[in-house]
Design a protein around this nucleic acid. Sequence first.
DNA 1: TACAAACGTGCGTGATAACGTACAGATATG
DNA 2: CATATCTGTACGTTATCACGCACGTTTGTA
Lengths: 204, 204
Amino acid sequence: MGVTAEKRQPEPAGTLSDSSAVGARVKALREAMDFSLRDLAERSGVSATMLSQVERGGTSPTLAVASKIASGLDLSLSRLLRLDETPHVVVSLKNEHRRHRRGGHQIEELTPPLPGLRVDVSAHVLDPGSATGGQGDSPMHEPGSRETAVVLEGLLVLVFEEERHQLDEGDSVTFDADLPHHFENESDAPTRFVAVITAGLRRG
Amino acid sequence: MGVTAEKRQPEPAGTLSDSSAVGARVKALREAMDFSLRDLAERSGVSATMLSQVERGGTSPTLAVASKIASGLDLSLSRLLRLDETPHVVVSLKNEHRRHRRGGHQIEELTPPLPGLRVDVSAHVLDPGSATGGQGDSPMHEPGSRETAVVLEGLLVLVFEEERHQLDEGDSVTFDADLPHHFENESDAPTRFVAVITAGLRRG
DNA sequence: TACAAACGTGCGTGATAACGTACAGATATG
DNA sequence: CATATCTGTACGTTATCACGCACGTTTGTA
């Protein structure tokens, strides 16, 4: 069971869209602190000329120089950069979740398609008598991946390499997801569970 | 990324403790992802020659190039830098029991303490008016870790770097867990949610 | 008003980042 | 074993970072 890996997008979340954003940020912080270019130059150890070029977006400073500038503004470099990165928090509202259904198997993606996200969280509902592992739903994942399933409601059966494992409400199970497996609902009530799949060891 | 200090002022406090630490970090991450220098060059748009120099600490790349390298590693530059900045306290549960409570916060570990497990899944109940992040519960996790929370019942508030995010039942949220955060229940009914925390990047 | 000081930026220059090419060693393959 | 391919790095070249100096403009002061 699982979702195909999202392909890398042109501008992943958190990447600087334009390094001149950092320059504008430095200028704004410097002015907020009531410093001139020469003031900041003295505090940071970077020349006023360079600071002017950076603020106007005319050059991309090295990490060493950028760290000095951040220090002159009483910040770490990572914190300075974070001010202009895309937001770290991604709230996924219930009605925004990507949902799909295959027969008696209902799937709801709970994690956003962020590049570099090494875990996939999804909610599942299995109607009575239904099972996962239909068309387009591989019984195995990429090598090294692992899965944890948590039963929220009802009864769940994990069939792992042809061995059956009974899970009651509140139980959880962790296993290597790169081996053949699927889930079944043999009861006469729907089963709800959350599946957490970690990225494999080799990422292409 | 070793800058010779012979002609420059000693680096002021607050800068990267060791520029070549970033290079070593890039090398460790690249090898963990099983990439060659040429593989990463293709993904990041930075030449293999340059990557080799950076990893060996022979040069300090510009912010523009460093951002490309980070992107090739599926990271933002600020996260890459954060891995080698001020050491963070690693959260560690005080006892091995699978269930425990702190005031109005009830926690249940759902994943077993398996070696090499790169994800931690836990169920939480917050009584009305309660919050996470009390004594012995650090507001930050190890560098590079990420967290996804799914609201199963009730209303939840995420306070992330002092910004509040409202979540209704069924909503989910994903964020960098190595920055200050905690959860609150401001409603008059209990809140149940599942938290999924991925291992940090610092681990082997 | 005149003058001094402060400010941001253009210009030229040296240092170094960034890359392409080629090499030697390691690894894979028939 | 011989050959091909992959890998990391040395070297030379080009592009650009980083700076000192000087300029024109703005601001402060007597």
